[in-house]
Design a protein around this nucleic acid. Sequence first.
DNA 1: TCTTGACTTCAACATATGTTGAAGGCCGAG
DNA 2: CTCGGCCTTCAACATATGTTGAAGTCAAGA
Lengths: 122, 122
Amino acid sequence: MSARLSTAYTLTVGEVAAESGVAPSAVRFYEQHGVIRAERTSGDQRRFSADAACRIRVAKVAQRVGLTVREIAEVFAALPGNPAPEDWGRVAETLIREAEQRTAALRAYLSEMRSGERLCDL
Amino acid sequence: MSARLSTAYTLTVGEVAAESGVAPSAVRFYEQHGVIRAERTSGDQRRFSADAACRIRVAKVAQRVGLTVREIAEVFAALPGNPAPEDWGRVAETLIREAEQRTAALRAYLSEMRSGERLCDL
DNA sequence: TCTTGACTTCAACATATGTTGAAGGCCGAG
DNA sequence: CTCGGCCTTCAACATATGTTGAAGTCAAGA
C-alpha cells in the first residue's frame, strides 16, 4: 500500500539553505513571506519538508522574470501539503504563462512603438 | 535636404511625466540613473528631448520582465543622440532577447525539475 | 550530562525603486 | 516687471529584498 504518507518536516534552516544555495537569513525571509512553510520543534526551531529547497530554487528563477516574492507565494499557495507532480505541473504552467504574458506585453509595446511611426524617434 | 537636425531638448520634467504617465519624481530618478538624458537651462532646469517619455514607457514594461533600472540604462546606452528607427529596433531586440532568455531559464529549470523525478515532490 | 555548533528573535544596515515635503529659484503671461 | 506655477536640491520616508550582529536557546554527540 503506498498511500502517500503525510509530509515529514525534518530539515533545518541550515540544511534548506545549503540545498537551495541561499543564505539561512533568506530561508527565514522566504518562510516569513509564504514561499515555504515550516513546522516548529518543541524548542521553537523551524523544520522544513523536502520541497522547501526546490520552492526556493524555483522562486529565484521566477524572480528573474519579474515576479515578486508575494506573487510567487500566491502561486505556490495552490500547492497542497504534499504536492504531487501534477500539482507542480500546474504551478509550472502558471509561472511560465505569467512570464510569457509579460514578455508579450514588452513585445507588443515595442512593436506598437515601431509601427506608430515617430512615437519615439524625433 | 533633410539632414537630421540635432535633437531639440525642450520638454520639462512635468511634460515628460505627463506624457509618460509617471510622477515627476520618477522622471528625475530615471535621469539620475541614466534611463533618460537631459540638458540644463541657464537656470539649471532640466530639458528633455522627445524620446524621453518613450524611453520611460519602455523602461516600465521592461521592469515587468525583471530588468533592473541599471540594466535598462545599459541597453539604452546603445542609442545615439537622435535615435533612428533602426536604433530602436536593435534596442527592442536586445530587450526581447533578454526577456526570452529569462523565460527560457525558468522553463528549463521547471522542466528539469519534472524530469528528474522526485526533485521537488517528497 | 555537558558542550558546542546551529538555532531563535530583534534591530540595524544595505540596495533598489521611488514619493513627499521644505525651502528656495526660474520663467512666461499679463 | 511682477507673479504664480513649475522648477531646483536635499533629506526623510516607504516598500521590497535581503544580510549582519548581538544576546540568548536548543539539540545531538562524546
